[in-house]
């Protein structure tokens, strides 16, 4: 069963006060997220990621289209008990303490009173806020608020978690923790749908990603599939101070530092370069396949979208 099926959701805002003109925040979107996967929703700022999430949360109403979440109509109120949501740059009732806030959200989500206390403590521990649970949220830093946000999203043990830019505002330690948490959720069999504009996060975590730009979907697929569509390259490093002429002719540039030489060649030239090095009696240090990064794919997609403006990929 698919966790999320987006069936042509579309949002057009009317902007301008006097002569209203339509602004497409999201063109009809078709997207399926499978059960149990971590799905990355990629795109630069203003691409339509947050709009999509708000549509799915029922905060904004679509101009057309519909969606199914966990097999049910997405407007079905019973769906909401089984999903968690972290908004972008979350902000909470700052007169409450972290503990009170989670308690309140637990009440709203219908967590039974008996389990609530225990569950709140558990989540506070999980997001690393146990020591500051009695502090009013107005005294929290941005990173701490992000943790509270993640805490409230997973509080009621939802089957499906939506995270809007979960890593933003966090230090490297925090990002690491959020990454671990997402993997743990996956491990528990939950589905994670998260949006980000930071590609390395998606690359490290996601089973599949979708790329969105200017309200339009540009590509969906497994990270490996997307990256392997571009020919790979190989990085070859050996000990020495000189570059044999035969190799020099083959590569555009080579870096010499200390007693190491480093060149990057096309995958199909790899054997030839190694043969030459053997013949020249150089000592090979490393041969590393350089997989095209998701970023390269992303940049490529956007570049192509710009040149063939309007055509979908």
């Amino acid at each position: 069963m698919a966790a999320i099926e987006i069936l042509g959701l579309e949002k057009t805002y009317k902007i301008g006060f006097w002569r209203k003109r339509p602004k497409h925040a999201l063109y009809p979107l078709q997207l399926t997220v499978e059960d149990g996967e971590i799905f990355g929703f990629l795109g630069p700022n203003g691409a339509g990621k947050t709009t999509t999430l708000k549509l799915l949360m029922g905060l904004v109403y679509p101009t057309a289209g519909s969606a199914r979440i966990l097999g049910r109509e997405w407007t079905d109120p019973s769906v909401k008990a089984q999903i968690g949501f972290l908004p972008e740059q979350p902000y909470f009732y700052d007169y409450l303490t972290a503990h009170e806030l989670l308690e309140y959200y637990g009440q709203l989500s219908g967590v039974p009173a008996k389990q609530r206390k225990q569950r709140v403590d558990q989540v506070l521990h999980q997001v690393g806020l146990r020591d500051v649970q009695g502090l009013q949220l107005r005294k929290f830093s941005k990173g701490m608020l992000q943790r509270v946000g993640i805490g409230q999203a997973i509080l009621h043990d939802p089957k499906l978690v939506f995270l809007d830019e979960p890593m933003s505002g966090l230090d490297p330690m925090g990002r690491r923790e959020v990454r671990d948490l997402m993997e743990e959720l996956k491990h528990q069999g939950k589905t994670v749908f998260f949006s980000t504009h930071i590609l390395s996060d998606a690359e490290a975590l996601c089973d599949r990603v979708a790329i969105i730009h200017k309200g339009e979907l540009r590509g969906v697929g497994r990270v490996e599939d997307l990256t392997s569509t571009i020919q790979g390259k190989v990085e070859i490093i050996w000990q020495g101070t000189q570059v044999p002429a035969a190799i020099k002719a083959m590569v555009a540039e080579c870096h010499v530092s200390g007693d190491r030489v480093r060149v990057i060649v096309e995958e199909n030239q790899q054997d030839m370069v190694i043969d030459i090095l053997r013949r020249e009696r150089q000592r090979l240090v490393a041969v590393i396949p350089v997989r095209t990064s998701l970023e390269a794919y992303f940049v490529e997609k956007l570049r192509r979208a710009e040149t063939t403006a309007g055509s979908t990929i």
């Binding site: 109120p77 909401k80 968690g84 949501f85 908004p87 009732y93 989500s109």
Partner: peptide
């Protein structure tokens, strides 16, 4: 304005 509503309305609250 403060977007505190998002986390309330994404729960089973009508």
């Amino acid at each position: 304005e403060k977007r505190t509503l998002y986390t309330v309305l994404s729960r089973p609250v009508r």
